[in-house]
């Protein structure tokens, strides 16, 4: 699946972006299938906005986003759900877990929304790798941010996808845990021959990126 951005500008940030150069905003760019893309930008330059536009939780923009030549704005309802179940997975910066469900239930929910990609036991394997086995039966609402972030990462990895969208996915993790999480993500992406788009504040060498852009 290829993602094409054409003259993309978020309407609330229009004036700000039209005055300075950017690799992404107000230009034409394509993310090819399997690309590992890093987007580096300081705070307030629209990283989260870009992620939300790509995942279609925001529509207030000019220009167009195309998934495999299909305008994202034209994909709605059950089609959009199918895209999110089969082709695109996401890790939000604000995590977005169901606070009343346990960690396991949060992950399980995304596993069974579609025909499961993995067995239920995979949840335990991944939780083990990221060191959160002990909180799987806890309500997500009472877990620390670091734990919630790892729950969100595992939730994104138990479904099938061709693209993984990650918005500052390691912001609440220490170095050691960041490396473990990055290794797991890299393994899962390779397994699916999937690409990803990752945003962060600084440059890093966690992944062998194919492209690095700045906003």
């Amino acid at each position: 699946m290829e993602i094409q951005l054409q003259q993309l500008v978020p309407i609330p940030l229009k004036e700000k972006f039209s005055q300075r150069p950017s690799n992404i905003w107000n230009t034409g760019i394509a993310f090819r299938a399997g690309d590992w893309i890093k987007i580096v930008a300081p705070s307030g330059t629209g990283k989260t906005t870009l992620m939300n536009i790509l995942y279609k939780v925001r529509h207030d923009y000019e220009g167009s986003v195309k998934w495999d030549n299909r305008d994202l704005k034209s994909i709605t309802g059950d089609d959009l759900a199918k895209l999110r179940q089969q082709n695109v997975s996401v890790i939000f910066q604000d995590l977005r877990l169901f606070e009343n469900l346990t960690a396991r239930e949060n992950i399980e929910l995304n596993r069974v929304l579609q025909k499961p990609f993995y067995e239920a036991a995979t949840i335990d394997d991944m939780a083990g790798l990221l060191g959160i086995s002990h909180i799987l039966e806890q309500r997500a609402g009472v877990c620390s941010y670091g734990e919630q972030q790892r729950i969100a990462i595992i939730r994104a990895l138990v479904q099938p996808f061709e693209w993984l969208i990650m918005d500052e996915p390691f912001s609440h993790l220490d170095n050691a845990n960041t490396h473990k999480a990055a290794d797991l993500i890299a393994t899962e992406c390779k397994k699916r021959k999937a690409g990803f788009v990752l945003t962060d504040l600084d440059e890093d060498s966690l992944f062998p990126y194919t492209h690095v852009y700045s906003l």
Partner: peptide, 15 residues
């Protein structure tokens, strides 16, 4: 809010 989040993570209106 819950239904919104469900749709966001990929639950289909049909489901």
């Amino acid at each position: 809010n819950e239904i919104n989040l469900l749709v966001t993570i990929g639950a289909s209106p049909k489901q």
